[in-house]
Design a binder for these strands. Sequence first.
DNA 1: TCTGGGGTCCTCAAGCTA
DNA 2: TCTGTAGCTTGAGGACCC
Length: 405
Amino acid sequence: MARVVMHVDLDAFYASVEQLRRPELRGKPVIVGGSGVPGERGVVAAASYEARVFGVRSAMPLARARRLCREGIFVPCDFKAYRDASEQVFQILHGYSPLVEPMSLDEAYLDLTGSQALMGQPEPVAVRLRDEVKRSCGLDLSIGIATCKLVAKVASELRKPRGLVVVNAGGEAAFLRPLPISKLPGCGPSTIRRLEPLGVGTIGDLAALPELLLGELFGQYGRLLHAHARGIDPSPVMPPGDPKSISREVTFDQDVLDPPRLRETALALLQDVGHSLRGHGLAARTVAMKIRYYPFETHSCQATLTYPSDRDDELTQAFTRLLDEHLDQSRPVRLIGAGVSNLEARAVQLSLLESRAAERAALDDRLDALRERYGEQAIFRGTSNRPQQKDFRRDDIDHLAAERK
DNA sequence: TCTGGGGTCCTCAAGCTA
DNA sequence: TCTGTAGCTTGAGGACCC
Ligand SMILES: [Mg+2]
Ligand SMILES: [Mg+2]
């Protein structure tokens, strides 16, 4: 049975939240970005549709946005406000499907497969959802509905703002065909640059290329690209899981050539990382440092601990080593960051459970070594029988058990 | 115009080992 | 016993997303 996947995306989210709580900003070109410090280095996080008329776009340096839009109202980011608004919206989303995959504060996939009897046809469901979010949160959103996540996402982006686009089963490839490859999620500047010389401008052009060629050019991603261009994307809607990495970084308003200050800044960031790590009940095996030197050259390095840790002292020790080894003290630093990855659930208390698990793992290693030396059938765990092994004793037992019935 | 911050996933190379 | 290799881990960098 074909799936019913919905992609929901709030329109100009941060800017809309600002206009919602400050009515004087409504109908005006609002540009959200930075932290509000004059002269800071920052980019546009969101622009209201009134500002977009001037050519202002997300990810554009604020300095450029100011030149493009002299009458723009520049507002610093307030993530707490956006998080609060986002939570309200997600409350509503959960009323429409038990399976919601958040992609960011302003975006989510909902799996509506099999909900027709309960909820009705997908399109009227989408209209109700849109109206409910508007009524109770005051925010506009766009919706795409299709048989897979990829096509649903392209659909939701197509008629923003307040768009609703449904792509019926079987119509995926035809829907994508005329669109420029830039609309395909995952197809960014670098991929576009490499496809251009092949004469690929539209998703249809891309779909026409042999899978082998794409595999040759783009490796694993090439095969995915080939499927995506045809509207094929079997990836399931997944509930949120544990984070895979946690990091904090800052770009200085002016480049810094002062090792003690860099160190203090970085260690404060790392403590924040540690705090978040413990908040998630996780421990990290890898500690990482990121540095961006003047003018814009980024380096990263990482070290793996012998065992996972969530303790500031241990993380700090590893991080300090990275800093001492890798910081080039002669170069001005633009950005510094700290992070952890290779995360695992924190061991419960200190002990039994954990040390037993470790013992078991060590035992497995020894058994594997013996098997390598003496053959697969040589040895098994005390409690386990040889799988599939014809063993007359077992046959007898099985036979008796069957007769006893 | 001068390039944020928080993530995810991929690639490639090198070392290790089953 | 030696050799070859497949697969994992680690580390650096890059593309991409919002
Ligand atoms: Mg979005
Ligand atoms: Mg959005």
